[in-house]
Amino acid sequence: MKKRRNLSGYFLFWRRLLQLGIVLLLVSPAAGFTFFRGNLISATLFGFPLHDPLATIDYFLAGKILLLSFLSGTFLVLVVYWIFGGRSFCSWICPYHLISEMFLPLHRFFRRPKPGFSSSQRYGFLGGFLLMSLILSVPVFESVSPVAAASQLFQSLAESGFSNQSVTDGTGLASILNVWFSGSGILLWFVLFLISIEVFVKPGWWCHGVCPVGTFYSLLGKISPLKITIKHNACDNCGECFKVCPVSQVLIAPVQGTANRVIDSICTQCGNCIDSCPTRALNFGFQFNRQENTDVISSH
């Protein structure tokens, strides 16, 4: 009998650690630290400017402006996510994705089928948001972004925890209620609204079906060297990876043997599949020679 042993949560551990670190980074200004300010739209870390590339495009379209000072901070972010496979932002950094993942057990409880995601819908939303910014001269996505809403939600929860200045009676519960029902409470309802769509309508609906940030990074992922690779002789088609992959459609080609890596860049580089694979057929792999991909997936 073949010895079955998977990595049981190795990448998940590091991913949760980084996600937690990002949340701590986001709330650090509320705790009085000054090395970081901003959110995932645009931030300054140890004096280095960092700009979300999509926010940069959106701002240039809305502001009808080309700010050269933006480009270095945007370039840095682009390079990092290019190296790490594009949508690694989604599963390793994004605080909304983190909240959304926390509700995954509910999907299992409701026995929701694995959803499929159409790329034309995602490109439609990306284009639509950019077009709205251009026409309305307002960075539209940045003002409705759940990515920013989730980070501001963590920030305002932290503020109510760290300071009792904004609440009159200062007790913990009262300050939390204050956050929930006035002012920043709208963030909570907004995030919960999207989560409820994900729970009741379609798991991963926002992240993999709508979010223009995810779509942008998936486009970047198309040219990224980092991919999930598969050793076909090790894979015994058990289907474990399909169970844990948020966008399981991407695993069909590699598992069926028509590709030697996950080609579809909607893959979030989460590593769930690697963790779950009992035969360790899957792994992260850098591949700079893109010709090889196209040879193997000729039937794709």
Partner: peptide
């Protein structure tokens, strides 16, 4: 402001008196 502000909150975090906050009137 509406045309140019991307809502990054950097001004909010930079103010040493925490005088600036986010407008929450949706």
């Amino acid at each position: 402001l509406r045309q140019h502000c991307v809502g990054c909150e950097q001004c909010i975090h930079a103010c040493p008196y925490q005088a600036i906050r986010s407008d929450r009137r949706i």
